[in-house]
Design a protein around this nucleic acid. Structure first.
Lengths: 248, 248
DNA sequence: CAGTATTTGTTCGTATGTATA
DNA sequence: GTATACATACGAACAAATACT
């Protein structure tokens, strides 16, 4: 018995494992396997898809890293929740690997999104949102110059804004656009140049604008804040990171 | 307070394969393995990381799907280019699996990004960009009511705008935010209600605004265009897709 | 609280397909 | 055309974690 493939081009995507990945993804995309669906056990699924268990496991592992599947040892393999927060989590890992000028590209995109998110947060002026922002702002003040605490409070502060519009995709993307490594680098830079008070002031302005429900002001304050960081980062990108562009 | 993250309640990340994934990713993130680096052959790398060849293959396959590694049979395994267009390609596959209200979330985010991209395109008023837009606009007109051709021209048209700002992250994200399935659905809807001329007119307005270098107009025309589609999609989301929101 | 069945995790050995010199 | 180096694939066996009775 010759398992002749459907004469696909020798491009990307040949091989039984790659086929299995596609087939499983199609089953999920078509809705046949909805969120939480339990997959057949590896032995059966392998037989069903016509490949060995080892090869199938490669497919499952790949889809597991992509957060499409969720594998629980001793239990079984399930389709994930398929929520934006889940499916876009790998995007965060991806942006973590970007370097050089592409880090600035992250900031440029963030600059296009987060001011809008802050404006929406101000429009609702939700009491919980305001309280959460206040908490992180206080944490930021109490943190002194401890970088790790500052980074955490900063991340939490911006995440409150990111989730205020109630859009899971927006929240996940904003998360991906400000990686922890860059955030850490920024706060160390802020501390080194003694600009902690300015940084806290910028956050306070955003907080105040949202607290009083001023959307325009929230948008402006957020934009200014992001550009402050973007500018500093642009000037302090190590020359090693400054990869020369070769024409496309 | 913060939900997920931090706490290791569910032991995600145990196991030799998961460890290998993390180790390889760290080597790439640290820059030790830069773009294009050739990895040791599977046998050696497995020995080096202290796991079997099969388990290592699972790790490599997963990172290959994530576009961090690139495997070439008979040759070897290499670190990818690590460019945004490469690393953010899985994000497109991810958004392809979103359904129901989360599809509208994609549109909301796109609405925050693409008008800005169109404005930037207008600011430059690059001759090549204008010509490329014209080409796709003509294609869209010549396509009649053939949906596949319309979808392709439409995708190409918006991609010209997406890449005009010269930001790879922005381009990749805009690509991810408008999936081919939704695009196909939209054009079929447009054809069904006999709104092909309106759709072409909206594209023509965007084209004209960019061609004359009017950034404000380009921004407005793009926003209107996206909202047209967003509104239609909101009204035509199958009731089955209309998942009830439970408060979080 | 056992003990047992079920399911994924991991390894080894071996054979085959593919690109390159 | 041949040799070599490498990834691809399979099957079987045992370990570890979980579920169930």
């Amino acid at each position: 018995m010759d398992q002749e493939t459907t004469s696909t081009a020798r491009r990307r995507g040949t091989g039984v494992t790659e086929d299995a990945i596609e087939q499983i993804r199609d089953l999920v995309a078509s809705g046949e396997w909805g969120p939480g669906t339990r997959l057949p056990r590896e032995t059966d699924l392998a037989k069903q898809l016509g490949l060995s268990r080892n090869s199938l496991r490669e497919a499952v592992r790949a889809l597991s890293l992509a957060r499409v599947l969720e594998v629980r040892q001793g239990d079984g393999t399930y389709v994930s929740s398929l929520e934006p927060g889940e499916l876009l989590e790998p995007t965060l890992s991806a942006t973590h690997l970007l370097r050089g000028r592409t880090v600035l590209e992250l900031f440029e995109v963030r600059r296009m999104l987060e001011p809008g998110a802050a404006a929406m947060a101000a429009l609702r002026a939700d009491a919980e949102v305001i309280a959460a922002l206040r908490t992180e702002l206080d944490r930021m003040i109490a943190a002194g110059n401890r970088a790790d605490e500052l980074v955490q409070a900063d991340a939490a502060f911006h995440d409150v804004i990111a989730r205020a519009p109630g859009n899971g995709v927006l929240r996940a993307l904003l998360r991906s656009l400000s990686t922890s490594t860059v955030r850490a680098r920024l706060w160390h830079g802020i501390a080194d140049r003694g600009a902690l008070d300015l940084a806290r002031e910028e956050h306070a302005r955003i907080y105040n604008a949202i607290a009083v429900g001023d959307a325009d002001l929230a948008r402006a304050a957020t934009l200014l804040h992001i550009v402050t960081n973007e500018t500093w980062l642009r000037e302090h990108l190590g020359p090693a990171d400054d990869v020369p562009l070769d024409g496309d």
